[in-house]
Design a protein around this nucleic acid. Structure first.
Length: 622
RNA sequence: GCCCACGUGGCUCAGUGGUAGAGCACAUCCUUGGUAAGGAUGGGGUCGCCGGUUCAAAUCCGGCCGUGGGCUCCA
């Protein structure tokens, strides 16, 4: 039940209440706080960069109101990589408008107008903003306590309700850029009016701005949707349906390589693999509670001979039902079952996004059935296993998040404490960066989420390890103890890669499509210089293929340069050149995609070289 | 679902009222060339779908579908 988050949570926004206020200032609860923070109390602490960006947002608002006096201002906070400001204006902003606004902002910056702080009583503030026609500012002030003293900042002839702080004057804003326009609901509530949001960014100097824009470009180039098309990895076709993925041969190849590795490591680590159906009767979903608490995300049922069947959004109920077919002894525990289980979830059309947010995806799910006593050891083991596997895929930078007991919870508080203490110990032992989100856990148990940072420094959530005190009750999961009595089990849900689709997307972006040799859909391409070498090329291809490598040959009539170029663009790790010299000596002249030319060598040597490069990194076990 | 933008051959895109174009890819032919594009010829598009305006619609209008940037959502 719990895997929804891990598999589908967006990269930048961590699910769970604790995380929400920290990560997304736009979410409903935090917006109110945002409003309050923005206008009352003493000048808050804001990093110099955030202060700069906040000031830049003010300059932008002033520029917008100069150009379109009818625009009403709302709020404009700094965000992680810049700032935004929301306006209420009929006219939608266009890309050309952004340029006009930027020019106007530049004029304000050049005027070097000081930011001046003013403090006035609440009543006066309401009157002031009412006169200005700034209805949203009036609304904000009206929501504040009556005794509050209100501050606003002015720059020249313009002012804005704001708590501050700001830079001393607009001249300090040296490097900024407006990036995009988007719709955004007033106060983040979809029942409210849709405002026009302009996103921008600002930096202390032009160099840093350039670097940031360059990173954005780089991220765009690595977008898995773009590379997915260019490298012919996957597609999503409207005649099949949004969020339903078609894996092309090359993408499927990588996927199956990931899965093979995953299966091998799970068997090696004491898991059994299971397999369960895609649909089940509604009775199961009533029993698990999913229809009740997850029904909105489930595809509607289909009628089969008068019975309703629904596509599974999660795998757990199948595993639990299967577990109950047998009465397990304490000697059998912990039982570890894993499945690459394909689930279907209804997601609103607007949220679908490449492979990162889809409607049908495969979770690398596992359930650990353990006694209370063995829970701590099992938790440590599973977290280490996750870290180990992620490292084999080339990730080394991790951050962990522990989410603890919320106000509303089920189960024994003592058990909660034990589990949380165990998770805490795992975090400490790991030596990795971590954060504790007090009260951020689900009602059924505490959890650890694991995020990895990719080559561009972006964070992606993959693994989640969640203790569950609820499902064992619903499914009456028990084992026979040493004393001969039946005891309640504890279940740990775990997704390691999250979902195969998502993880694949992260891999594509991390490597910019240049997969490491062990994952590359094509490891080597045999290229000939002329058709005189065709026979030898075929022999090379077949030989290497028999040795287990993924090889193709390019026997087209193009010149060598063109063949090399094509292979480069396809990001194939090795190009194996066969010319007359090589034919004569029964050798190949390899070249790497990094442009390195290797000495001409025989097939045994090349196979050895390739096998060495195709080794899975850190594959020695956890 | 909401706001905005976009939807033209397999791909990337040009074409703003007069019945479709480029590059790449593909096919055939010429070339047999040593590490990121050799040349020629050719095939391929009911311009997302439906309706409307007009003598005439890829182009203007409306609806729908899809995609993108965000918002909301993702216990």
């Amino acid at each position: 039940m719990s895997m929804s988050e891990s598999a589908q949570g967006q990269a930048e926004t961590r699910p769970g209440q604790g995380a929400r206020s920290a990560d997304s200032p736009e979410s409903p609860e935090s917006v109110d706080q945002e409003l309050i923070d923005e206008v009352v109390g003493s000048v808050p602490e804001l990093s110099p960069l955030d202060t700069l960006r906040h000031s830049c947002a003010h300059v932008m608002a002033k520029a917008v109101q100069r150009l379109w006096p009818e625009a009403k201002v709302t709020i404009g906070p700094p965000v992680e990589t810049g700032f935004y400001y929301d306006f209420d204006i009929e006219r939608p902003f266009s890309q050309e408008d952004l340029e006009r606004i930027e020019a106007e902002m530049q004029a304000i910056v050049e005027a070097d107008e000081p930011f001046e702080r003013h403090e006035i009583p609440r009543d006066q503030a309401i009157e002031l903003f009412r006169e200005l026609g700034e209805d949203y500012k009036v609304e904000i002030v009206e929501r504040l306590p009556p005794e509050a003293s209100i501050t606003y900042y002015s720059t020249g002839d313009w002012l804005d309700l704001c708590r501050g702080p700001h830079v001393a004057s607009t001249g300090e804003i040296k490097a900024f850029k407006l990036l995009s326009v988007a719709g955004a609901y007033w106060r983040g509530d979809e029942r409210n009016k849709m405002l026009q949001r302009i996103y921008g960014t600002a930096f202390p100097d032009k160099k840093q701005l350039r670097e940031h824009l360059h990173r954005l470009e780089e991220a765009k180039k690595r977008d898995h949707r773009k590379l997915g098309k260019e490298l012919d990895l996957f597609s999503i076709d409207e005649t099949i349906g949004g969020g339903l993925v078609l894996w092309h041969p090359k993408g499927a190849r990588v996927r199956y390589l990931i899965e093979e590795h995953w299966r091998r490591e799970h068997y090696a680590s004491g898991y059994e693999l299971v397999s369960t159906p895609h649909i089940a009767r509604d009775a199961l979903w009533h029993k698990s509670g999913h229809l009740n608490f997850y029904g909105e995300n489930m595809f509607s049922g289909m009628d089969v001979e008068g019975q309703t069947y629904l596509a599974k959004p999660m795998n757990c109920p199948f595993h639990f039902t299967m577990f109950n077919r047998t009465l397990y002894s304490y000697r059998d525990l912990p039982v570890r079952w894993a499945e690459l289980g394909t689930v279907y979830r209804y997601e609103r059309s607007g949220v679908l996004h490449g492979l990162l947010r889809v409607r049908g995806f495969t979770q690398d799910d596992a359930h650990l059935f353990t006694s209370r006593e063995e829970l701590p050891g099992e938790l440590e083991r599973v977290v280490n296993f996750c870290l180990y596997i992620l490292r084999t895929f080339g990730f080394s930078d991790f951050k962990l998040y522990l989410a603890t007991r919320p106000a509303k919870f089920v189960g024994d508080p003592e058990l909660w404490d034990e589990a949380e203490a165990a998770l805490h110990a795992v975090l400490e032992k790991s030596g990795l960066e971590y954060e504790v989100e007090r009260g951020g856990g689900a009602f059924y148990g505490p959890k650890i989420d694991l995020k990895l940072r990719d080559s561009l420094g972006r964070e992606w959530q993959c693994s989640t390890v969640q203790v569950d005190f609820n499902m064992p009750e619903r499914f009456d999961l028990k084992y026979v103890g040493q004393d001969g009595d039946r005891h309640r089990l504890v279940v740990v849900h775990r997704a390691l890669l999250g979902s195969i689709e998502r993880f694949f997307a992260v891999l594509v972006e991390h490597y910019a499509g240049a997969f490491p040799v062990w994952l590359a859909p094509v490891q080597a391409r045999v290229v000939t210089i002329s058709e005189k070498q065709d026979a030898w090329a075929r022999e090379v291809e077949n030989d290497l293929r028999r040795r287990g490598f993924r090889v193709e040959s390019d026997l087209s009539s193009d010149k060598l340069g063109a063949k090399i170029r094509r292979a480069q663009l396809e990001k194939i790790p090795y190009m194996v050149v066969c010319g007359d010299r090589e034919v004569e000596r029964r050798e190949v002249a390899p070249r790497t995609r990094e442009g390195q030319k290797l000495e001409s060598m025989g097939l045994d040597d090349f196979a050895e070289h390739l096998a060495d490069k195709a080794r899975i990194p850190g594959g020695e076990g956890p």
